[in-house]
Design a protein around this nucleic acid. Structure first.
Length: 401
RNA sequence: GGGUAGUUGGCGGAGUGGUCAAUCGCAACAGACUGUAAAUCUGUCGAGCUUAGCUCUACGGAGGUUCAAAUCCUUCACUACCCA
């Protein structure tokens, strides 16, 4: 893998780069559609290509369970198995440590998952996660990490980060002594953690930089903290990550989040939002998000976004898309997903263009202003609500008497 | 013509004397969704108001019994099936 920093924006930390892998180059900043199980839901590979996708995600935990690592290995790797010839990044299952918290047990050695499918138990050591990703043949592999919940105590975040650092080291050691299986090279990214705590975040990033990876991910965000926290974390972490290496902010986000974080120096994003929301009837437009199922679109014979060049907007009306969405027609999911994916990829492409011409900040401000004014008009909450959860017992500070 | 069963909120369909403005499903309406246990989930869903409460109108129509009726009685209308 080779990363070239092509241009740094004059008025922000935004960067335009080129990430070259054996499966092709990726123009950064980039949005990576999430294809957890080996497909981006409700959209075909050819449609992804038509809409400008350059890399997709897969998930180690999910693919390990189904169809199984060995099946994919016998198929000749994940690219061959799913028929996707462009780059693939696989997440490690670290997020599932968070999202399947009720079904897992953490130890220093690794994490035990109880399958959400059949309840069977599986143990992942950091080394196992590397082995699985070698068998998958991912262009970019992720280390196993613990994504701590929000909120969590400083003490918990600190302990958690120590574990994540240790696991990153183990992953790297194992990764380096395991040759790739399919003739193409693979890279490994570690994940910065530390919850919302600046000291831990910085320590985490610095420690990983010392280990020297080909790229770095910022994790543990978009788990319920405020968007201000997300931006702050992106900013403080990017400041200490090497500028010559790609930076990947995991799980982010809304169109605004992506622009804000690009301006803080992030190169890569992934999020289920465009695909999941499409299936659930929320569509992104240059003037805010719309809920296509709403009655107000029943006889709206205009495109979802008149500024959009996607297949859906070029050929169909809001009224028709609403109808398809309302009757839960498969092609409805397909059309909404095409639109949202196109929109996200269009957004990062525009961002890149403006970075290269040093007009990114103007572009961002104009985009946000238009996007937010509409949302305000519609009474939508454009901002992210802070979900305050009860801290689970094991995440609380243990008071020593 | 005779018999039997039925008629409940937009629809389907519970409910057989008070805890019923009425379970539930669908439809409808609105909201949520951020490294996907999600084509999912949540809320509203008779009307009005000074909206954690109150008032009014409601279970085919009319009348009756009762302190109290969607629930019991009479009658009318309609629907389905069976017999002639």
């Amino acid at each position: 893998m080779k990363f070239s920093l092509l241009h740094k924006d004059a008025k922000s930390e935004a960067r335009a780069g080129l990430l070259e892998t054996d499966h092709g180059a990726i123009e950064t900043p980039i949005f990576m559609p999430v294809g957890t199980l080996g497909d981006v839901k409700a959209i075909e590979h050819r449609e992804l290509l038509e809409n400008g996708a350059q890399i997709i995600l897969g998930n180690t935990y999910h693919l390990y369970l189904r169809p199984g690592t060995d099946t994919i290995k016998r198929a000749g790797g994940l690219h061959k198995f799913i028929g996707w010839n462009l780059p693939i990044l696989t997440d490690s299952g670290g997020y599932q440590v968070f999202s399947l918290a009720k079904l897992r047990k953490l130890t220093q050695e690794g994490v035990q998952f109880q399958s959400h499918i059949d309840g069977s138990k599986h143990f992942f050591r950091p080394e196992d996660v590397v082995d699985i990703q070698k068998k998958l043949g991912s262009d970019i592999c992720m280390v196993l990490d613990e994504c701590p919940p929000y909120p969590c105590s400083h003490e918990y975040a600190l302990r958690s980060n120590i574990l994540t650092m240790e696991w990153a080291e183990r992953c790297k050691t194992h990764f380096e002594k395991t040759p790739p299986l399919y003739g193409h090279s693979q890279s490994l990214f570690p994940i910065v953690q530390g919850s919302v705590f600046e000291d831990i975040r910085l320590q985490s990033a610095e420690q990983l930089v010392k280990m020297d990876f080909e790229g770095y991910a910022i994790g543990g965000v978009s788990v319920g903290e405020s968007k201000e926290d997300v931006y702050r974390i992106a900013e403080m972490n990017c400041a200490v990550l090497p500028s010559a290496k790609p930076r990947y902010l995991m799980g982010v986000g809304t169109p605004l989040d992506i622009l804000e974080c690009i301006s803080r120096g992030v190169d890569m994003f992934d999020c289920v939002m465009p695909t999941r929301n499409a299936r659930n009837g929320t569509l992104f437009t240059t003037y805010g998000k719309i809920t296509i199922r709403n009655a107000s679109y029943a006889e709206d014979f205009t495109p979802i976004d008149e500024n959009c060049g996607c297949y859906t907007c070029t050929n169909f009306t809001r009224a028709y898309v609403r109808h398809l969405s309302n009757i839960q027609e498969i092609v409805g999911h397909q059309l909404t997903t095409i639109h949202n994916i196109y929109f996200y990829l269009w957004l990062v492409k525009e961002a890149r263009k403006h970075i290269q011409s040093n007009t990114f900040v103007q572009f961002k401000d104009a985009f946000i202003s238009r996007y937010e004014s509409h949302e305000a008009t519609r009474g939508h909450d454009s901002g992210r609500k802070t979900k305050v959860r009860r801290i689970p017992k094991d995440y609380e500070v243990t008071k020593s008497k």
